[in-house]
């Protein structure tokens, strides 16, 4: 992981993004580099939660230099519906890179806020999928919804 956030729960991540969004611009500009890494790490923690919940050991690999993208690919293996958050993950990496490259202060703060919003969306998406795991898959391109429930009904 980029930073030590592996233990973060989904709600912790959402809470942290809310805190970032509420922070004053001066603080966001001043701490932009550190926040960029923290948000990237928080996104990785979200995907690790998903993998662990599915009995997998999160990869320690990276794609294009980013563990987040490797974790996403691992999460989507055999589960195409997880690709609904592929671009969200890439957007997080994109904003992290822009924050690191951006020198102008107001723009750095704005970028940090955008990154926090995208990380929050990832957390909400994965959190929603985890919550509904007992009911079936979550998203539009999913495999059968409530498959087990349906099978049970048919057996009866």
């Amino acid at each position: 992981m980029t930073t030590a956030h592996a233990s973060l729960a989904i709600d912790d991540v959402i809470g942290r993004t809310d805190a970032v969004l509420a922070a004053p611009e001066t603080a966001l500009s001043r701490d932009a580099d550190a926040l960029a890494e923290e948000l990237l790490g928080a996104a990785e923690a979200v995907l690790m939660r998903w993998l662990i919940a599915h009995g997998q050991v999160p990869t320690d690999g990276a794609i294009e230099g980013f563990p987040l993208l490797a974790l996403h690919r691992q999460g989507a293996r055999g589960d195409p519906s997880f690709n609904a958050c592929r671009e969200t993950c890439r957007e997080i990496v994109y904003h992290r890179n822009l924050i690191r490259l951006e020198a102008a202060e107001p723009e750095r703060a704005r970028r940090v806020r955008l990154a926090a919003m995208v990380v929050r969306h990832l957390a909400l998406f994965v959190g929603g999928k985890l919550e509904t795991a007992g009911l079936g898959e979550f998203c539009c391109s999913s495999r059968p919804l409530r498959q087990s429930e349906y099978s049970e009904t048919r057996t009866v």
């Binding site: 609904a84 958050c85 671009e87 969200t88 957007e91 904003h95 955008l114 990154a115 919003m117 995208v118 969306h121 998406f125 929603g128 979550f138 998203c139 539009c140």
Partner: peptide
């Protein structure tokens, strides 16, 4: 930044 994100 969320132009292709899931709407649920």
């Amino acid at each position: 930044p969320l132009k292709t994100a899931c709407c649920g």
